[in-house]
Simulated scan of single mutants.
Amino acid sequence: MSERHGVTPAQTVGPYLSIGLRWPDGPHVVPPGTPGSFWVRGRITDGAGAPVVDALVESWQADPDGRFDHPDDPRGARASSVAGFRGFGRSETDDQGWYALLTVRPGALPAPDGGTEAPHLNLSVFGRGLLHRVVTRLYFPDEPAANAADPVLRGVDADRRGTLVGRESADGVRFDIRLQGDDETVFFAV
């Protein structure tokens, strides 16, 4: 007679998140003191509005000239004119769900359709309960014309576009990320 077992519970990211995803340069996309650098700060919250205290935010971005030092850049890889620019950063959330990334403003990018994408950061969120990262973009609040012409932003329902635009803050830009519920941040399938 065969014995029947219950369903194994789903696994979450677990301790690997804080052990395996640490980045030696942490939240510094550019070295501290880089001219033009600023902080992107925000809070990660769940569907009930509670802080997500064990998440990690990862950023990828172009340099101020809108270039990547990567072979997948169709214009060719090119080192940044900003000394120490990494184009990548990781920030763990604190006990209130806050993350912070030190960066510089990216330049506009050529869009696949021949247009232009507005300056933006690509952000991934990893965390407990997420078996896969969620990916979003941060657009800058002082770029209304570029944002209005951006093909990706234009493809988002008008009433949800605001979840992709940061707010000016004293030392840079604030960008909160809501994982579910009312005012959920727009996430992209990549």
Score class of each variant (00 low, 15 high):
residue 28 H to F: 08
residue 165 V to M: 10
residue 139 Y to S: 14
residue 36 G to A: 14
residue 130 L to P: 00
residue 78 R to A: 13
residue 103 T to Y: 06
residue 87 G to C: 14
residue 118 A to Q: 09
residue 31 P to M: 00
residue 137 R to F: 06
residue 159 D to M: 05
residue 29 V to G: 09
residue 33 G to V: 15
residue 186 V to P: 15
residue 117 E to H: 05
residue 140 F to N: 07
residue 8 T to N: 11
residue 136 T to E: 06
residue 141 P to A: 07
residue 119 P to E: 05
residue 128 R to M: 01
residue 70 H to E: 12
residue 31 P to Q: 00
residue 182 D to C: 02
residue 69 D to I: 05
residue 53 V to M: 04
residue 52 V to G: 03
residue 21 L to N: 12
residue 132 H to S: 12
residue 10 A to G: 10
residue 13 V to T: 13
residue 22 R to H: 07
residue 176 D to Y: 04
residue 46 D to C: 05
residue 7 V to L: 09
residue 160 R to H: 15
residue 93 T to S: 07
residue 16 Y to M: 06
residue 76 G to Y: 07
residue 180 Q to L: 02
residue 65 D to H: 08
residue 125 V to P: 05
residue 3 E to H: 13
residue 176 D to A: 15
residue 78 R to D: 11
residue 80 S to Q: 07
residue 95 D to H: 07
residue 104 V to Y: 07
residue 48 A to E: 15
residue 143 E to D: 14
residue 170 A to P: 08
residue 86 R to G: 14
residue 142 D to L: 10
residue 72 D to F: 01
residue 114 G to N: 05
residue 43 R to Q: 10
residue 119 P to R: 00
residue 8 T to E: 08
residue 132 H to Q: 15
residue 171 D to M: 12
residue 169 S to Y: 00
residue 8 T to A: 07
residue 80 S to V: 02
residue 26 G to N: 01
residue 113 D to M: 13
residue 13 V to D: 03
residue 104 V to N: 06
residue 33 G to I: 11
residue 90 R to P: 03
residue 104 V to P: 00
residue 20 G to T: 02
residue 44 I to M: 01
residue 112 P to V: 15
residue 74 P to L: 06
residue 178 R to D: 09
residue 26 G to I: 00
residue 50 A to F: 03
residue 67 R to P: 02
residue 49 G to P: 12
residue 1 M to E: 07
residue 62 A to N: 02
residue 72 D to N: 08
residue 59 S to A: 12
residue 52 V to F: 00
residue 22 R to T: 04
residue 183 D to M: 01
residue 187 F to E: 00
residue 57 V to E: 06
residue 182 D to P: 05
residue 149 A to S: 08
residue 66 G to W: 03
residue 55 A to P: 09
residue 138 L to P: 00
residue 153 L to N: 11
residue 5 H to P: 08
residue 106 P to H: 04
residue 128 R to C: 03
residue 165 V to L: 12
residue 145 A to D: 15
residue 41 R to Y: 10
residue 103 T to M: 07
residue 141 P to S: 15
residue 51 P to F: 03
residue 85 F to A: 01
residue 163 T to H: 00
residue 43 R to A: 00
residue 189 A to D: 11
residue 45 T to D: 12
residue 48 A to Y: 03
residue 5 H to A: 09
residue 81 S to G: 06
residue 131 L to N: 14
residue 48 A to M: 03
residue 29 V to N: 12
residue 50 A to Y: 03
residue 147 N to K: 10
residue 149 A to E: 09
residue 63 D to H: 01
residue 140 F to V: 09
residue 171 D to K: 11
residue 74 P to H: 10
residue 177 I to A: 00
residue 109 L to Y: 14
residue 70 H to L: 10
residue 104 V to C: 04
residue 130 L to C: 05
residue 44 I to E: 03
residue 123 L to E: 02
residue 45 T to R: 04
residue 8 T to I: 10
residue 41 R to H: 15
residue 184 E to K: 10
